[in-house]
Computed example of a mutant assay.
Amino acid sequence: MIEFHAVHAPARPRPAPHVHRSRADEVYEQLKRDVAEFNLVPGDRFTENELSERLGVSRTPVRQALFRLQQEGYVEVLFRSGWRVLPFDFDQFEQLYDLRMVLETTAVQRICADDLRVDQALLAQLAAIWLVPAAERSSDAAQVSKWDEEFHCALVAAAGNNEMARVHRDVTDRIRIIRRLDFTKQMRIDATYDEHAKILKAVQRKRADQAAMLLRAHIETSQAEVRKITLHQVHLARTSGLGK
C-alpha cells in the first residue's frame, strides 16, 4: 500500500527566468478565459473594435490573438461582419476524450508500479480533497469543476513523465469548457466524489488494473454526459457564473 507521509515545506525555489509576454499573448489568454468561463459562448459575434475597446488595447494584438484562436478552432472570421465563436465540435471532443483516457489510464498503471518513484506529495493533496466524509464535500459547482481538472492533471503528473503531462495539459485545456458543463447537476458532483475516491483507494493499494478500469469508466461516463450537452445549458452556465 502506498504510504502518505506528511508534506514538508519545500526548499525555496530559485526565481524563474522572466518570460516576455506580448500584448497579443495577453489578449489570447484573456479570450480563452472568456470562452472557458462562458463570457463568450458558441454563436456569439463580435468585432475587433469591440474587443479593442473592452480590453484597452489596439486592434493589432487583438487580430493576432484571434488568428491564433482561429487556428485552434475556437472562432471563425465572418466576411465583412467580424468574428463568431464556433459551435462545439463534438467529434473533436470525442477524440480528445479518447486520448485523455489513454494518457490517464497509462499514468495510474505507472503510479501503481512497484519500481516507479511516485510524487507522494501530489497524491496526498488529492486524498485531502477527495477522501473526505460526505458532510465535508463541496457543493460549489465551479470549485468542484476546478478540483476535478486538478485531480486528473495531478494523477498524470504524479507518474513522472513530463512529456505525457504536457500533452495531457493541452488536452485538458481544449476540453475545459465542455467539461465544466458536466457539473451543472448535483448528482454529477456526488458521482465525481464517489468515483475519485474509488480511484484513489485503488491507487493506494497498488491495484493497477482496478484503478485503470475505474478511471476508464469514470471518463466514459463524463464523455457520455458531454454528448447530451445543449446550447441551452451553455447559456444557463453563463448566467449562473459556473465558469468563475
Results as ranks from 00 to 15, higher is better:
Ile178Val: 09
Asp173His: 12
Ala157Ile: 06
Leu155His: 03
Thr184Asn: 12
Ala141Ser: 13
Arg176Leu: 11
Arg174Thr: 08
Gly160Tyr: 01
Thr105Gly: 01
His196Glu: 07
Lys201Asp: 15
Glu149Trp: 13
Arg176Ala: 11
Thr105Trp: 02
Asp115Leu: 00
Ala191Ile: 09
Asp140Pro: 08
Ala158Thr: 03
Val132His: 08
Ala158Asn: 06
Ile177Trp: 07
Ser145Gly: 12
Leu116Gly: 08
Glu150Ala: 14
Ala191Phe: 13
Ala124Arg: 08
Thr184Lys: 14
Ala134Cys: 07
Ser139Tyr: 05
Ala107Trp: 04
Ala197Cys: 05
Met187Phe: 15
Arg110Gln: 08
Leu131Val: 12
Glu149Leu: 15
Ile189Arg: 14
Ala128Pro: 01
Gln120Asp: 08
Tyr193Val: 11
Glu150Phe: 14
Ala202Asn: 08
Arg117Glu: 11
Val167Tyr: 00
Ser139Val: 05
Ala128Gln: 02
Lys201Val: 15
Asp182Glu: 14
Ser138Lys: 04
Val144Pro: 00
Ile189Tyr: 14
Leu131Ser: 10
Tyr193Ala: 12
Ile178Asn: 02
Leu200Trp: 10
Ile189His: 15
Phe151Gln: 02
Val156Met: 03
Val167Ile: 07
Ile177Phe: 09
Asp194His: 15
Ser138Gln: 04
Val167Ser: 00
Ala202Leu: 08
Ala202Pro: 06
Ser139Trp: 06
Ala157Glu: 06
Ala135Gln: 10
Ile199Val: 15
Thr192Ile: 13
Asp114Leu: 07
Ala197Pro: 05
Thr172Asn: 05
Phe151Asn: 01
Val132Ala: 07
His152Lys: 09
Leu123Val: 06
Ile175Asp: 00
Val118Glu: 00
Gln120Phe: 07
Ile129Asn: 06
Gln186Pro: 13
Asp194Trp: 15
Val118Cys: 00
Lys185Phe: 14
Arg166Pro: 00
Leu116Ala: 12
Ala159Arg: 01
Asp119Cys: 03
Glu163Cys: 10
Thr184Pro: 11
Leu181Tyr: 02
Arg179Lys: 12
Trp147Pro: 05
Ala127Gln: 11
Lys146Glu: 12
Ala159Val: 02
Ala159Leu: 02
Glu195Val: 10
Arg166Ala: 12
Trp130Thr: 01
Glu149His: 13
